Simulated scan of single mutants.
Amino acid sequence: MLSRRLQRTVTAEDAGLSRAPSTVSELIQEADPLRRLSALTRAELDPTRRHLLSSGLYSLAVLAAPEALQPHRKPPAGPAGAPGRAGRAEVEEMQTMTRVFAEAAQAHGPGHVRTALAAYLGHDATGYLHARATEDLHRQLLSGAAQLTILLGTMCADSGADALAQRYHQTGAQLSVEAGDASTLAIALRTMSAHAHDLGHRTPAVLNLAERAATRETAPIVQAYAQAHLAVVQAHHDKHAALTALTSCERLYEKAHTTPGPFTHYPVGALHYQRAETLAALGDQAGATRALTASLRLRSPAEGQARTLTRARLAESLLGQGHLDAALTHWQTFLDEAPGLHSLRIGRCLDAMRRLLNPHRHHRATAQLLTHAAALY
Protein backbone atom coordinates (compact mmCIF):
# COMPACT_ATOMS: atom_id res chain seq x y z
CA MET A 1 0.00 0.00 0.00
CA LEU A 2 2.80 2.42 0.85
CA SER A 3 4.44 1.71 -2.51
CA ARG A 4 1.18 2.41 -4.34
CA ARG A 5 0.62 5.68 -2.49
CA LEU A 6 4.16 6.94 -3.13
CA GLN A 7 4.16 5.68 -6.73
CA ARG A 8 7.53 4.01 -6.19
CA THR A 9 8.77 0.79 -4.64
CA VAL A 10 9.39 0.93 -0.89
CA THR A 11 11.47 -1.96 0.41
CA ALA A 12 11.37 -3.49 3.86
CA GLU A 13 14.72 -1.85 4.50
CA ASP A 14 13.33 1.56 3.52
CA ALA A 15 10.47 1.08 5.96
CA GLY A 16 12.80 0.07 8.77
CA LEU A 17 11.54 -3.51 8.77
CA SER A 18 14.86 -5.04 7.72
CA ARG A 19 18.49 -4.53 8.72
CA ALA A 20 20.45 -2.30 6.34
CA PRO A 21 23.60 -3.85 4.82
CA SER A 22 26.69 -3.12 6.89
CA THR A 23 29.36 -4.00 4.31
CA VAL A 24 29.82 -3.44 0.60
CA SER A 25 29.81 -7.22 0.06
CA GLU A 26 26.26 -7.34 1.42
CA LEU A 27 25.26 -4.59 -0.98
CA ILE A 28 26.59 -6.37 -4.06
CA GLN A 29 25.92 -10.04 -3.30
CA GLU A 30 22.29 -9.76 -4.39
CA ALA A 31 21.99 -11.92 -7.51
CA ASP A 32 19.01 -10.05 -8.95
CA PRO A 33 20.42 -7.05 -10.89
CA LEU A 34 17.42 -4.81 -10.28
CA ARG A 35 17.47 -5.39 -6.52
CA ARG A 36 21.26 -4.88 -6.51
CA LEU A 37 20.84 -1.61 -8.40
CA SER A 38 18.27 -0.43 -5.88
CA ALA A 39 20.56 -1.29 -2.97
CA LEU A 40 23.59 0.42 -4.48
CA THR A 41 21.78 3.63 -5.44
CA ARG A 42 20.11 3.85 -2.03
CA ALA A 43 23.51 3.57 -0.39
CA GLU A 44 24.89 6.32 -2.66
CA LEU A 45 22.16 8.66 -1.48
CA ASP A 46 22.44 7.77 2.23
CA PRO A 47 25.21 9.76 3.99
CA THR A 48 25.40 7.11 6.71
CA ARG A 49 26.12 4.30 4.22
CA ARG A 50 27.87 6.02 1.31
CA HIS A 51 31.26 5.13 2.80
CA LEU A 52 30.45 1.44 2.26
CA LEU A 53 30.69 1.95 -1.48
CA SER A 54 34.33 2.98 -1.34
CA SER A 55 35.40 -0.02 0.74
CA GLY A 56 35.34 -2.61 -2.02
CA LEU A 57 38.18 -3.66 -4.31
CA TYR A 58 38.19 -3.94 -8.08
CA SER A 59 38.54 -7.62 -8.97
CA LEU A 60 39.69 -9.32 -12.15
CA ALA A 61 38.26 -12.54 -10.74
CA VAL A 62 34.71 -11.30 -11.33
CA LEU A 63 35.45 -9.78 -14.74
CA ALA A 64 33.00 -11.92 -16.66
CA ALA A 65 30.18 -11.42 -19.12
CA PRO A 66 26.60 -12.69 -18.92
CA GLU A 67 26.38 -15.93 -20.84
CA ALA A 68 22.99 -15.65 -22.55
CA LEU A 69 20.89 -13.07 -24.31
CA GLN A 70 17.39 -14.32 -23.67
CA PRO A 71 14.90 -12.02 -21.97
CA HIS A 72 13.43 -13.71 -18.94
CA ARG A 73 12.25 -10.96 -16.59
CA LYS A 74 8.51 -10.47 -16.93
CA PRO A 75 6.79 -7.16 -16.15
CA PRO A 76 4.77 -6.97 -12.94
CA ALA A 77 1.23 -8.24 -13.54
CA GLY A 78 -2.02 -7.14 -12.00
CA PRO A 79 -2.82 -4.09 -9.87
CA ALA A 80 -2.01 -5.67 -6.52
CA GLY A 81 1.40 -4.60 -5.26
CA ALA A 82 2.29 -2.68 -8.43
CA PRO A 83 2.86 1.08 -8.01
CA GLY A 84 1.05 2.32 -11.13
CA ARG A 85 1.63 1.74 -14.83
CA ALA A 86 4.57 2.63 -17.07
CA GLY A 87 4.28 3.26 -20.80
CA ARG A 88 5.80 4.98 -23.82
CA ALA A 89 6.13 8.30 -21.97
CA GLU A 90 8.37 6.72 -19.33
CA VAL A 91 10.54 5.06 -21.99
CA GLU A 92 11.02 8.38 -23.75
CA GLU A 93 11.71 10.11 -20.44
CA MET A 94 14.50 7.64 -19.64
CA GLN A 95 16.01 8.16 -23.09
CA THR A 96 15.95 11.91 -22.57
CA MET A 97 17.51 11.65 -19.11
CA THR A 98 20.28 9.39 -20.45
CA ARG A 99 21.16 12.07 -22.99
CA VAL A 100 20.93 14.88 -20.41
CA PHE A 101 23.19 13.14 -17.89
CA ALA A 102 25.75 12.18 -20.55
CA GLU A 103 25.85 15.72 -21.94
CA ALA A 104 26.18 17.25 -18.47
CA ALA A 105 29.09 14.92 -17.65
CA GLN A 106 30.84 15.88 -20.89
CA ALA A 107 30.30 19.60 -20.32
CA HIS A 108 31.24 19.78 -16.65
CA GLY A 109 32.85 16.47 -15.73
CA PRO A 110 30.99 13.68 -13.94
CA GLY A 111 31.82 14.78 -10.40
CA HIS A 112 28.57 16.63 -9.69
CA VAL A 113 26.39 14.61 -12.05
CA ARG A 114 26.88 11.21 -10.44
CA THR A 115 24.65 11.82 -7.41
CA ALA A 116 21.81 13.18 -9.52
CA LEU A 117 21.99 10.16 -11.82
CA ALA A 118 22.01 7.77 -8.86
CA ALA A 119 18.93 9.51 -7.47
CA TYR A 120 17.08 9.24 -10.77
CA LEU A 121 17.99 5.57 -11.13
CA GLY A 122 17.18 4.71 -7.54
CA HIS A 123 13.79 6.41 -7.48
CA ASP A 124 12.24 7.04 -10.90
CA ALA A 125 13.85 4.43 -13.18
CA THR A 126 13.58 1.48 -10.81
CA GLY A 127 10.06 2.59 -9.97
CA TYR A 128 9.08 2.29 -13.63
CA LEU A 129 10.53 -1.22 -13.73
CA HIS A 130 8.31 -2.26 -10.84
CA ALA A 131 5.22 -0.78 -12.49
CA ARG A 132 2.81 -2.64 -14.73
CA ALA A 133 3.67 -2.48 -18.44
CA THR A 134 3.35 -4.46 -21.63
CA GLU A 135 6.18 -6.93 -22.19
CA ASP A 136 7.62 -4.89 -25.07
CA LEU A 137 7.58 -1.65 -23.11
CA HIS A 138 9.04 -3.38 -20.07
CA ARG A 139 11.99 -4.57 -22.17
CA GLN A 140 12.51 -1.02 -23.40
CA LEU A 141 12.46 0.22 -19.81
CA LEU A 142 15.03 -2.43 -18.91
CA SER A 143 17.23 -1.24 -21.78
CA GLY A 144 16.91 2.33 -20.57
CA ALA A 145 17.84 1.33 -17.03
CA ALA A 146 20.80 -0.69 -18.35
CA GLN A 147 22.13 2.32 -20.25
CA LEU A 148 21.71 4.66 -17.28
CA THR A 149 23.47 2.10 -15.05
CA ILE A 150 26.41 1.76 -17.46
CA LEU A 151 26.66 5.56 -17.58
CA LEU A 152 26.64 5.73 -13.77
CA GLY A 153 29.38 3.10 -13.62
CA THR A 154 31.55 5.14 -15.95
CA MET A 155 31.03 8.21 -13.77
CA CYS A 156 32.07 6.19 -10.73
CA ALA A 157 35.23 5.04 -12.52
CA ASP A 158 36.00 8.67 -13.31
CA SER A 159 35.64 9.40 -9.60
CA GLY A 160 38.10 6.66 -8.62
CA ALA A 161 35.40 4.33 -7.27
CA ASP A 162 36.59 1.43 -9.41
CA ALA A 163 34.99 -1.44 -7.51
CA LEU A 164 31.63 0.30 -7.51
CA ALA A 165 32.00 1.12 -11.20
CA GLN A 166 32.65 -2.54 -11.90
CA ARG A 167 29.45 -3.56 -10.08
CA TYR A 168 27.37 -0.99 -11.95
CA HIS A 169 28.81 -2.09 -15.29
CA GLN A 170 28.04 -5.72 -14.49
CA THR A 171 24.54 -4.78 -13.39
CA GLY A 172 23.99 -2.85 -16.61
CA ALA A 173 25.17 -5.84 -18.63
CA GLN A 174 22.76 -8.14 -16.80
CA LEU A 175 19.85 -5.75 -17.28
CA SER A 176 20.61 -5.56 -21.00
CA VAL A 177 20.49 -9.36 -21.15
CA GLU A 178 17.10 -9.36 -19.45
CA ALA A 179 15.96 -6.76 -21.98
CA GLY A 180 17.22 -8.86 -24.90
CA ASP A 181 19.21 -5.80 -26.01
CA ALA A 182 22.30 -6.97 -27.90
CA SER A 183 23.58 -3.46 -28.63
CA THR A 184 23.52 -2.29 -25.03
CA LEU A 185 25.12 -5.56 -23.93
CA ALA A 186 27.95 -5.05 -26.44
CA ILE A 187 28.47 -1.51 -25.12
CA ALA A 188 28.48 -2.82 -21.54
CA LEU A 189 31.09 -5.48 -22.35
CA ARG A 190 33.22 -2.92 -24.16
CA THR A 191 32.92 -0.54 -21.21
CA MET A 192 33.95 -3.24 -18.72
CA SER A 193 36.98 -4.12 -20.83
CA ALA A 194 37.94 -0.46 -21.31
CA HIS A 195 37.72 0.17 -17.56
CA ALA A 196 40.02 -2.76 -16.83
CA HIS A 197 42.42 -1.63 -19.56
CA ASP A 198 42.49 1.92 -18.16
CA LEU A 199 43.50 0.42 -14.80
CA GLY A 200 46.50 -1.23 -16.47
CA HIS A 201 45.15 -4.75 -16.83
CA ARG A 202 46.19 -6.59 -20.01
CA THR A 203 45.00 -10.10 -19.16
CA PRO A 204 43.21 -12.59 -21.45
CA ALA A 205 39.99 -11.87 -19.54
CA VAL A 206 40.14 -8.22 -20.59
CA LEU A 207 40.80 -9.22 -24.20
CA ASN A 208 37.97 -11.77 -24.05
CA LEU A 209 35.46 -9.10 -23.04
CA ALA A 210 36.63 -6.84 -25.86
CA GLU A 211 36.31 -9.70 -28.36
CA ARG A 212 32.84 -10.65 -27.14
CA ALA A 213 31.71 -7.04 -27.47
CA ALA A 214 33.06 -6.82 -31.02
CA THR A 215 31.61 -10.08 -32.30
CA ARG A 216 27.97 -9.48 -31.37
CA GLU A 217 25.31 -8.93 -34.03
CA THR A 218 24.65 -5.22 -33.59
CA ALA A 219 24.28 -2.05 -35.64
CA PRO A 220 27.41 -0.98 -37.57
CA ILE A 221 27.99 2.02 -35.28
CA VAL A 222 28.03 -0.21 -32.19
CA GLN A 223 30.32 -2.69 -33.95
CA ALA A 224 32.66 0.16 -34.90
CA TYR A 225 32.69 1.33 -31.27
CA ALA A 226 33.56 -2.17 -30.07
CA GLN A 227 36.17 -2.81 -32.78
CA ALA A 228 37.95 0.47 -31.94
CA HIS A 229 38.51 -0.67 -28.38
CA LEU A 230 39.41 -4.20 -29.47
CA ALA A 231 42.21 -2.66 -31.56
CA VAL A 232 43.59 -0.92 -28.47
CA VAL A 233 43.55 -4.11 -26.39
CA GLN A 234 44.93 -6.30 -29.18
CA ALA A 235 47.86 -3.90 -29.59
CA HIS A 236 49.27 -5.41 -26.38
CA HIS A 237 48.87 -8.95 -27.69
CA ASP A 238 48.95 -9.19 -31.49
CA LYS A 239 49.96 -6.36 -33.86
CA HIS A 240 48.27 -7.89 -36.89
CA ALA A 241 45.00 -8.44 -34.99
CA ALA A 242 45.12 -4.86 -33.71
CA LEU A 243 45.52 -3.37 -37.18
CA THR A 244 42.81 -5.67 -38.53
CA ALA A 245 40.39 -4.50 -35.84
CA LEU A 246 41.27 -0.88 -36.55
CA THR A 247 40.61 -1.34 -40.27
CA SER A 248 37.34 -3.11 -39.52
CA CYS A 249 36.31 -0.26 -37.22
CA GLU A 250 36.95 2.36 -39.90
CA ARG A 251 35.04 0.42 -42.57
CA LEU A 252 32.07 -0.05 -40.26
CA TYR A 253 32.12 3.61 -39.32
CA GLU A 254 31.97 4.70 -42.96
CA LYS A 255 28.71 2.83 -43.59
CA ALA A 256 27.10 3.47 -40.19
CA HIS A 257 23.96 5.54 -39.81
CA THR A 258 23.59 7.12 -36.40
CA THR A 259 21.12 9.16 -34.39
CA PRO A 260 22.08 11.61 -31.64
CA GLY A 261 22.56 10.04 -28.24
CA PRO A 262 25.26 8.55 -26.02
CA PHE A 263 24.37 4.97 -27.00
CA THR A 264 23.56 5.54 -30.67
CA HIS A 265 26.33 7.88 -31.85
CA TYR A 266 30.11 7.46 -31.90
CA PRO A 267 31.94 10.79 -32.39
CA VAL A 268 34.58 10.71 -35.11
CA GLY A 269 36.99 12.44 -32.72
CA ALA A 270 36.66 9.47 -30.37
CA LEU A 271 37.47 7.07 -33.21
CA HIS A 272 40.70 8.95 -33.95
CA TYR A 273 41.54 8.90 -30.24
CA GLN A 274 41.28 5.11 -30.19
CA ARG A 275 43.43 4.97 -33.32
CA ALA A 276 46.04 7.04 -31.47
CA GLU A 277 45.95 4.71 -28.46
CA THR A 278 46.39 1.70 -30.72
CA LEU A 279 49.33 3.22 -32.62
CA ALA A 280 50.98 4.39 -29.40
CA ALA A 281 50.77 0.86 -27.96
CA LEU A 282 52.33 -0.45 -31.18
CA GLY A 283 55.22 2.01 -30.86
CA ASP A 284 54.19 4.39 -33.66
CA GLN A 285 54.42 7.65 -31.72
CA ALA A 286 54.38 9.86 -34.82
CA GLY A 287 51.23 8.15 -36.06
CA ALA A 288 49.65 8.48 -32.62
CA THR A 289 50.41 12.21 -32.60
CA ARG A 290 48.78 12.67 -36.00
CA ALA A 291 45.69 10.77 -34.83
CA LEU A 292 45.46 12.84 -31.64
CA THR A 293 45.77 16.03 -33.67
CA ALA A 294 42.89 14.87 -35.86
CA SER A 295 40.88 13.87 -32.79
CA LEU A 296 41.31 17.27 -31.19
CA ARG A 297 40.37 19.07 -34.40
CA LEU A 298 37.19 17.01 -34.77
CA ARG A 299 35.96 17.23 -31.19
CA SER A 300 32.71 19.20 -31.00
CA PRO A 301 32.18 22.03 -28.47
CA ALA A 302 29.81 19.72 -26.57
CA GLU A 303 32.63 17.23 -25.92
CA GLY A 304 34.21 19.40 -23.23
CA GLN A 305 35.85 16.74 -21.10
CA ALA A 306 36.87 14.59 -24.07
CA ARG A 307 38.43 17.59 -25.80
CA THR A 308 40.43 18.56 -22.72
CA LEU A 309 41.64 15.01 -22.12
CA THR A 310 42.60 14.67 -25.78
CA ARG A 311 44.58 17.90 -25.58
CA ALA A 312 46.49 16.65 -22.55
CA ARG A 313 47.25 13.35 -24.27
CA LEU A 314 48.45 15.22 -27.37
CA ALA A 315 50.78 17.34 -25.24
CA GLU A 316 52.24 14.18 -23.71
CA SER A 317 52.76 12.65 -27.15
CA LEU A 318 54.44 15.79 -28.49
CA LEU A 319 56.79 15.99 -25.52
CA GLY A 320 57.69 12.34 -26.00
CA GLN A 321 58.92 13.23 -29.47
CA GLY A 322 60.94 16.20 -28.22
CA HIS A 323 58.51 18.98 -29.21
CA LEU A 324 58.56 20.87 -25.90
CA ASP A 325 57.24 24.22 -27.16
CA ALA A 326 54.28 22.63 -28.96
CA ALA A 327 53.51 20.53 -25.88
CA LEU A 328 53.57 23.62 -23.66
CA THR A 329 51.08 25.37 -25.93
CA HIS A 330 48.58 22.54 -25.54
CA TRP A 331 49.16 22.20 -21.81
CA GLN A 332 48.51 25.91 -21.36
CA THR A 333 45.12 25.52 -23.02
CA PHE A 334 44.54 22.40 -20.92
CA LEU A 335 45.08 24.48 -17.77
CA ASP A 336 42.62 27.06 -19.04
CA GLU A 337 39.92 24.44 -19.64
CA ALA A 338 40.49 22.08 -16.70
CA PRO A 339 39.07 24.15 -13.79
CA GLY A 340 35.53 23.83 -15.15
CA LEU A 341 35.65 20.04 -15.19
CA HIS A 342 35.09 17.97 -12.05
CA SER A 343 36.90 14.79 -13.00
CA LEU A 344 39.55 12.54 -11.51
CA ARG A 345 40.88 11.88 -15.01
CA ILE A 346 41.61 15.59 -15.39
CA GLY A 347 43.52 15.48 -12.11
CA ARG A 348 45.55 12.51 -13.30
CA CYS A 349 46.43 14.37 -16.50
CA LEU A 350 47.57 17.29 -14.37
CA ASP A 351 49.78 14.99 -12.28
CA ALA A 352 51.24 13.49 -15.47
CA MET A 353 51.96 16.97 -16.83
CA ARG A 354 53.90 17.93 -13.70
CA ARG A 355 55.85 14.68 -13.72
CA LEU A 356 56.75 14.91 -17.39
CA LEU A 357 57.71 18.58 -17.23
CA ASN A 358 59.78 18.30 -14.06
CA PRO A 359 63.03 17.49 -15.97
CA HIS A 360 62.44 20.71 -17.98
CA ARG A 361 61.60 22.91 -14.99
CA HIS A 362 64.58 25.24 -15.60
CA HIS A 363 63.24 26.08 -19.05
CA ARG A 364 61.63 29.51 -18.68
CA ALA A 365 58.28 28.78 -20.36
CA THR A 366 58.03 25.47 -18.54
CA ALA A 367 58.67 27.12 -15.19
CA GLN A 368 55.94 29.67 -15.91
CA LEU A 369 53.48 26.93 -16.83
CA LEU A 370 54.24 24.95 -13.67
CA THR A 371 53.83 28.09 -11.58
CA HIS A 372 50.47 28.70 -13.24
CA ALA A 373 49.43 25.13 -12.52
CA ALA A 374 50.45 25.45 -8.87
CA ALA A 375 48.30 28.57 -8.52
CA LEU A 376 45.27 26.78 -9.96
CA TYR A 377 45.60 23.53 -8.00
Rank of each mutant, 00 (worst) to 15 (best):
T184W: 02
L199P: 05
Q223V: 12
Q223M: 09
R202G: 03
L175A: 01
A219C: 09
A205Q: 03
E217A: 10
Q174I: 00
T184I: 04
A194T: 10
T215V: 12
A186S: 03
V177F: 01
H195N: 06
Q223N: 05
M192C: 09
D198M: 08
A219E: 15
N208C: 11
G180L: 02
I187M: 12
A219M: 14
S193M: 04
A188C: 08
A231T: 08
T218C: 09
R202P: 04
R212L: 13
V177A: 01
R190I: 06
E217Q: 10
A224S: 08
Y225N: 15
M192H: 05
R216V: 14
L209M: 07
N208M: 11
E217W: 14
T191R: 06
V232Y: 04
G200Y: 07
T218F: 07
T218K: 03
E178C: 05
V177I: 01
A231E: 05
L230E: 06
G180N: 04
I221G: 05
V177W: 00
A188D: 01
T218W: 09
S193H: 03
R190S: 12
V232S: 10
E211V: 12
I221D: 00
L185H: 00
H236L: 13
A226Q: 11
S176G: 05
A205V: 10
G200E: 06
T203V: 10
A194M: 14
E211A: 11
A194R: 05
E217P: 06
L207V: 11
H201M: 13
A205L: 08
A210R: 07
A213W: 05
L189M: 02
